[in-house]
Simulated scan of single mutants.
Amino acid sequence: MATKGQAGESLAIGAVLGRAFGVMRGNPLTVFGIAFLLGALPQGILGYAVRAEATSPDPAAQAGLVGLYMGYGLVVLLCSALAQSALVRASSAYLEGRSASIGESLSVGLAKVLPVIGVSILLSLGLMVGFLLLFVPAIILALMWIVAIPALVEENTGVIGAFGRSRYLTKGSRWQIFALMIVLLVIIWLVALLAFIPGAILGLGVVAAAVSPAATVLSLVTTTVTTALSSTLITTLYFALRERQDGPQAAQLADVFA
């Protein structure tokens, strides 16, 4: 269960990480089940198909790569949006002191999938513009908008309102959020390295290692873990920021006026 903070307190990175791991330990079936079904499995199947097509000597296979990439992008976008919104619900339910089933989480995810896709597309476009203007503006925008999706799912802010809500919640905490994201990236990088262990042991090339059965299984496992960790961490960050900015009674008030 979440530990309530006080409005205006400094964001505690360790507490946010601890709550994220607590969510995963407290409701593993729902969290890792959703991360696997909607995160790892679609990416694994489609990624394997893309790599197989790319390495095939058949000219027809090579010609179909463009369509395959487009289909890959659309399916991953849809599944990613559904996974994010479902994992936000599963995480927030645990932080509120109860366990959400896979069915409940997916129900919320389906209801929010289109707005979440809208937020994801606008976020990507905004970050692209930021990168064109140089690297620093993209980082600033990413930190400002990092909890837009949890805000959308939990507060029904709407697509545009989610960005403003995230900007408000992250104000005064962006250096701490930056440090937290560095920690997350390091963890993801270390976990992702596990998928390359079989190829390194067997001395396989990069392409051969990527399509080996052992690497495929490990890739599914690592993607499940990183998907679950990323979504739960962003959700626990959202709750911590909401408690910091709105006070410890924010959740109860939000329920009353929902």
Score class of each variant (00 low, 15 high):
210 A>G: 02
40 A>V: 08
60 A>K: 12
180 L>Y: 01
202 L>V: 05
147 V>E: 03
15 A>Y: 02
39 G>M: 10
85 S>Y: 01
192 A>R: 11
181 M>W: 12
69 Y>I: 13
148 A>P: 06
105 S>N: 10
71 G>L: 08
30 T>V: 02
61 A>V: 06
66 V>F: 06
210 A>K: 10
254 A>S: 15
131 F>N: 05
100 A>Q: 08
85 S>M: 02
67 G>D: 12
2 A>G: 02
120 S>G: 13
222 T>K: 09
56 S>R: 06
167 R>C: 07
217 V>W: 12
36 F>M: 14
35 A>Q: 04
225 V>W: 10
31 V>F: 07
151 A>R: 09
256 V>D: 03
186 V>K: 01
4 K>M: 12
236 T>F: 04
204 L>S: 11
151 A>V: 09
242 R>D: 10
14 G>K: 03
18 G>R: 02
92 S>M: 15
1 M>Q: 11
99 S>K: 15
254 A>W: 15
227 T>A: 13
142 A>N: 10
41 L>V: 09
14 G>P: 12
191 V>N: 07
143 L>D: 07
45 I>M: 02
184 L>Q: 07
13 I>A: 10
196 F>K: 10
170 T>H: 04
142 A>L: 08
34 I>Q: 07
50 V>N: 06
39 G>V: 04
214 A>Y: 11
147 V>K: 05
98 R>A: 08
71 G>Y: 06
101 S>D: 04
209 A>I: 03
154 E>G: 08
4 K>S: 14
188 I>E: 05
166 S>P: 11
120 S>D: 14
122 L>N: 07
151 A>N: 10
172 G>S: 00
63 A>M: 14
132 L>R: 02
107 S>C: 00
76 V>H: 01
100 A>T: 07
7 A>Y: 06
88 V>W: 05
116 V>N: 04
122 L>E: 14
183 V>P: 00
233 L>V: 01
215 A>K: 05
114 L>S: 05
203 G>I: 05
156 N>L: 03
20 A>Q: 00
83 A>K: 11
120 S>N: 15
207 V>M: 13
226 T>H: 07
109 G>H: 03
244 R>T: 01
206 V>L: 15
211 V>P: 11
255 D>L: 14
44 G>V: 00
120 S>T: 15
242 R>M: 06
158 G>Q: 04
143 L>E: 08
205 G>R: 07
39 G>Q: 09
139 I>V: 12
123 L>K: 13
33 G>T: 11
239 F>W: 10
254 A>H: 12
41 L>D: 01
198 P>G: 03
69 Y>D: 01
7 A>T: 00
25 R>A: 13
218 L>G: 09
162 A>D: 11
71 G>K: 08
76 V>K: 09
150 P>W: 12
241 L>T: 03
52 A>W: 13
198 P>W: 08
15 A>T: 07
168 Y>N: 06
91 S>R: 02
235 T>W: 02
82 L>Y: 05
226 T>L: 02
257 F>M: 05
133 L>F: 10
191 V>T: 02
184 L>A: 06
164 G>Y: 05
186 V>I: 11
111 A>I: 01
16 V>W: 04
84 Q>Y: 15
52 A>P: 09
68 L>T: 14
161 G>D: 10
183 V>C: 00
70 M>H: 03
165 R>M: 06
109 G>I: 04
1 M>V: 14
248 P>G: 05
180 L>C: 04
247 G>Q: 01
188 I>G: 00
249 Q>E: 15
238 Y>P: 00
12 A>S: 15
204 L>F: 13
127 L>W: 07
57 P>V: 08
